[in-house]
Computed example of a mutant assay.
Amino acid sequence: MYKKYFKRLIDFVLSTIGIVVLLPIWIALALAIKVDDPGPIFFKQKRIAKDKNGKKQFFQIYKYRSMKMCTPHDTPTHLLKNPQQYITKTGRFLRKTSLDELPQIFNIWKGEMSIIGPRPALWNQDDLYAERAKYDANAILPGLTGWAQINGRDELEISEKAKFDGEYVKNISFLFDCKCFFGTLLSVLKKEGVIEGGTSEMKKRKDKEKE
Rank of each mutant, 00 (worst) to 15 (best):
T90S: 04
Q149G: 06
T77N: 10
I115Q: 10
E196M: 15
F174E: 03
F182C: 01
R95M: 05
S200C: 07
E112K: 08
Y129K: 08
G111S: 14
K134P: 07
G111N: 14
L122T: 03
L156R: 00
Q85M: 06
D165Q: 06
G91W: 15
E155G: 14
T145I: 06
T199R: 13
R92L: 10
L189H: 09
D100N: 08
C180A: 04
P83S: 00
Q85E: 04
L175I: 12
L144Q: 07
K163Y: 07
I116K: 05
D126E: 13
K170N: 06
E196A: 13
I195G: 09
C178P: 02
G183Q: 14
W109N: 00
F174V: 11
R95A: 07
E155L: 12
L122N: 00
G143N: 04
D136K: 12
L99A: 00
M202C: 10
K179T: 09
L144W: 03
K191A: 07
W123K: 00
I140Q: 10
D127G: 08
E192G: 10
A148F: 00
T88F: 12
K203H: 03
K190G: 09
E160D: 13
D154V: 08
E201W: 07
F176G: 03
Y86Q: 12
G91T: 09
L122Y: 04
I150E: 07
V169R: 07
E192I: 11
